[in-house]
Design a protein around this nucleic acid. Structure first.
Lengths: 151, 151
DNA sequence: TATTGTTATACTCTATAACTATA
DNA sequence: TATAGTTATAGAGTATAACAATA
């Protein structure tokens, strides 16, 4: 990339009145740093997303995971392929619908999540969000929640 | 795409405690709608960004525009190509450094911005951000500004 | 020697469409 | 007839590296 190494995205300063630009810059800021941190474990932001979804919701079909992350089912195939090869998830046929898989977190997957990935992302997260007061963090989460929750 | 047509990105509900996910979902929400709105004028979010940067800062080199939008100079070539072909910007050689172009907004470009694009994006923006109270909007902008402005 | 714009190229990401097996 | 997963493929977007003109 060009100018987005570690400096803040400068669009913000130019267009501080536009929430859209700010949102994009902020999201890029956080995502870039998380991607950087996850690179050590050879995982992408999206892979981590799959693991987190499975941890939170239990076994799901590929399509359902994709729906929750806004990823197409054909794209999910590759993502699950990689995670399965690394032993972080397993595919087994859904008992009640044998067209679908039941994707499940393995013990190594769960361990990686708890012992490595969560601390790692929490650290990055803290570094970026750490600039904000606790009050502002709560504000931000509440406001963003309203934004994405609406119609 | 799969599940991100018009429904809110569902990651948020699952991981409401993680600002990173929320930021991504919110940014995607806004960007998708803006892209949709700009489609009528056959422009992308990023093209609009170039026009806005030029409007705010005056003539700039391709590389400088790219730096401000976090886009590589090789990518800028194509973007400016299209905008120039549509008569929205002009390339002229920089007087003091004849390696560089001076990219300038044309009158049609400025007019399109003022009469069409700004109202359009303001409308979309209002539709998404409109869910928030005026107070929350101010909060959000201030907090995001802190996030992207920091080290 | 360094830098702007350019080109060619390659890589990543993703979706579309057609297929299979199940429902 | 519809759906989950798969596959092949194609398109968009982007960066890397080498080159010409200029500094």
């Amino acid at each position: 990339m060009s100018g987005n190494g570690h400096e803040p995205a400068p669009t913000a300063r130019l267009l501080a009145e536009s929430t859209g630009w700010l949102l994009n810059d902020a999201a890029r800021e956080v995502t870039l740093r998380l991607e950087e941190a996850l690179k050590g474990d050879d995982l992408r932001w999206r892979d981590y997303g799959v693991l987190v979804v499975l941890e939170a919701a239990g076994p799901l079909s590929q399509q359902e995971i994709g729906r929750r992350l806004a990823v197409d089912r054909s794209t999910m195939v590759h993502i699950i392929d990689v995670l399965e090869q690394r032993g972080l998830v397993v595919r087994s046929r859904d008992k009640t619908d044998r067209r679908a898989y039941s994707i499940e977190l393995t013990e190594p997957g769960r361990t990686l999540l708890v012992e490595v990935l969560h601390p790692l992302t929490a650290e990055v997260h803290g570094r970026v969000i750490g600039r904000l007061t606790l009050e502002d963090r709560a504000h931000l989460n509440r406001i963003l929640g309203q934004l994405v929750g609406g119609p």
